[in-house]
Design a protein around this nucleic acid. Sequence first.
DNA 1: CTATGTGAAGAACTTCACAGCT
DNA 2: AGCTGTGAAGTTCTTCACATAG
Lengths: 232, 232
Amino acid sequence: MAKNVDATARIKKIAPHQIPYSTILRLTQYLRVVEKIDELGVRNISSAELSEETLINSFLVRKDLSYFGEFGVRGVGYEVPILRRELKKILGVSTRHKTVLVGAGNLGRALVQYQGFYERGFEITAIFDSSPDKIGTKIQEFTVESVFTLEDYIVKNPDITIGIIAVPAANAQFIANLLVANNIKGILSFAPLTLQIPDDVVYATADLTTHLEIISYYLTHPDARKTFEVRI
Amino acid sequence: MAKNVDATARIKKIAPHQIPYSTILRLTQYLRVVEKIDELGVRNISSAELSEETLINSFLVRKDLSYFGEFGVRGVGYEVPILRRELKKILGVSTRHKTVLVGAGNLGRALVQYQGFYERGFEITAIFDSSPDKIGTKIQEFTVESVFTLEDYIVKNPDITIGIIAVPAANAQFIANLLVANNIKGILSFAPLTLQIPDDVVYATADLTTHLEIISYYLTHPDARKTFEVRI
DNA sequence: CTATGTGAAGAACTTCACAGCT
DNA sequence: AGCTGTGAAGTTCTTCACATAG
């Protein structure tokens, strides 16, 4: 059982750019399972058990993990604390990321109050909005600030790397440009459109309704494959 | 230019089960663009223009659409109102879907107040929670009801086909079982775990933090491909 | 001459089978 | 004896090139 050898000592030759996006997506699921069972005090997990919990086939579990190293012990499985630590390292969530949130509407307020971001390594440090009747209002411990102070705030806090956009579609590109111009490295947008973002900024979009549309498609076409996965 | 012939008259032979999941995901993006420009009064759009707006390559735009019929006019492009109608038909959002929401926490409240679901064809008809201090409270025009009345409500309203789960991870499977047992056809869960759902129920999961973890991965591995897409 | 629709080629991802460790 | 790690096979998805239609 690896004798607690640091698994990172044996690192893979495959360059990260060869790793499928879908692998990264699945890594987040493995992490979720591993954190849960680590909390329960389970010391060991096999790819078959990970497969049961995630519904991802066990060949694929092993292949995904093997892109990043040899974290398992043949004949035994994976040591839970090691796997947890390595997955967090791979995903870059061993240390906390600081973010700003733009948009203090219903969704923005929900995101601030949502515990999950913080628990999983992301901290909202400030909230901005353009609407005069939102600026100055309180959400939890935050006071909503004017979007015109956003630039200044980001420049003064260069450890903020991610911007979260929760404004209406019509304003999203404007906010994105502002974030990009001020050296934000990653953008998560909840607006239902594709933003134009330069290649050196990591960009993800999370349109909540899309999931429902996809469910609707499969409800409408019951003969379509049952085994699809709807995932981010 | 098709002389307004109903494009559905010429329908494709390819069975729905051969259509990639990623195609369905992209259809939602085309619909978004087409609705926007239809609102602007534009009558025609080419696959090249759709490609610009969505960043999806134009070969793929055409291939995706061609799975479902010949909606375009060679030498011209796609007629916007026709494409809009056909995309809605394909996705099954020509008529509104009724849903129930379980979980009246921050996320649940945000989802109720979020206009997007309704605008895009989904209606939340009732909200349930298990916590005594939430039951009876008002969210918009809704009164939060006890989760013990959920069963009764779904049975009495068989036109409700989709259940949205916005409860903590620990309770999500219980709620899912309840929905499944009462004949719900589709489930969208925001809980950060994989639920066990029978194959005849359409199941999608939307863990908001996953997007941030993926952004974190690509921030941590700047050499990873720049052209990845983070969607749904 | 323009832009769609599509078979065929190519690329990417998943599954398999089994070698390799413990 | 058991479970991981991985090259190779198999499958699915995307890109291409061009025939087709207006």
